[in-house]
Design a protein around this nucleic acid. Structure first.
Lengths: 189, 189
DNA sequence: TTAAAAATAGACCGACTTGTCTACTTCAAG
DNA sequence: CTTGAAGTAGACAAGTCGGTCTATTTTTAA
């Protein structure tokens, strides 16, 4: 698998569970079973490892979500599937994403507040990517670009809200409640 | 004002801006202009100071939000006012809450992931408190407890989603978009 | 088989971490 | 005026931080 990927995997797991500033380089090295010099052979600093971990999580999460949504007909069904997907995530039924500790990107922006910081930007880019995925499906059931944008935005807010509620309050049904609201919004008649 | 409150104020400001694990005790002491022994005279550990900071933010935020909502007639107007209030927050028009760096409680739960941790529990309690405030107003325009609960939940998710979108993506209009969606949900005709 | 590349363990650096301790000063109440 | 509490500055402890360096071993490829 390669030492570099071992480092990124281990770093992501520890960063996601405990936060980034709470985890030291030495702990990552020990749990990955990799020597310190090897890390600094692949990355020029801890920050550089953090960026790699964020990028890895971006691909991991996006590919998984896109895969789940693509398993359904484009449009309404795919959008509803998103809520079922995150419901599985909240309830630890998606090993790929590790145990649920909220959204790694939201958590990370809490530690890198400045919007100018490369790590923060990388997190924003992930969210934008997911939004585009929603918008693509929203277009299938909308009569205009604007309408699609508004629908995607509403579903996006509900999803983000559900993630927060599930993590902070431990509400494991947050995704299903969000889905019920979304369902009413898409076909209210 | 008292040294204890100086410490809590300074700690909250630094924790909110940079995250908790990124800020050391010595930095808090220096910026507060307080001696180290004084801190350990009032608090038994850094964690204890963290709890005090979370509690302080809870009161600061809740009192502010409740005040804003109470400035409007109970029910629909008060619920809509919530979105205007957080819109002002996002755009740094609420000095009491400091510059906007997302939700301190969401950010803090990212650093204290375990739901059993006292700090995490304190954050969850804050969210529950805000939810009850919403529910109280939702009851004014609902025909049943269940309907009020569902309405409060929907508005809560939209608000949390807007906070995340505003912080991570820098979308300063997130609150207004959430308000538009909420408005359609409350009186869809 | 041999030579270069990559990985290893671990010493080492200066700075910083939370927390304790001492000695001195400020200040308010009796 | 005195006594005691509260605050001060700063040394100190034991450990961790990110990062560099050396010396050795393992792996890979020609």
């Amino acid at each position: 698998m390669g030492r570099r990927q071992d480092l990124v995997d281990t770093a992501l797991r520890l960063f996601y569970e405990h936060g980034i500033h709470a985890i030291g380089i030495n702990q990552v090295l020990q749990e990955a079973g990799v020597a310190k010099q090897t890390l600094y052979n692949h990355f020029e600093s801890k920050d550089s490892l953090v960026e790699a971990a964020v990028e890895h999580r971006d691909n991991l999460f996006f590919d998984w979500l896109e895969g789940r949504m693509n398993s359904q007909p484009a449009g309404r069904e795919a959008l509803m599937e998103m809520f079922d997907a995150v419901h599985d995530w909240f309830n630890n039924r998606v090993p790929t994403l590790h145990r649920f500790y909220g959204c790694f990107f939201i958590n990370t922006c809490g530690e890198y507040s400045s919007p100018e910081h490369p790590v923060h930007k990388r997190c924003a880019a992930h969210k934008a990517r997911v939004f585009e995925l929603l918008k693509r499906h929203a277009l299938e059931i909308s009569t205009s670009e604007t309408e699609a944008e508004e629908l995607a935005n509403a579903l996006f807010l509900l999803k983000e809200g559900a993630i927060v509620k599930a993590h902070v309050e431990g509400d494991l049904d947050a995704a299903l409640k969000a889905k019920a609201i979304a369902s009413r919004m898409i076909s209210p008649h």
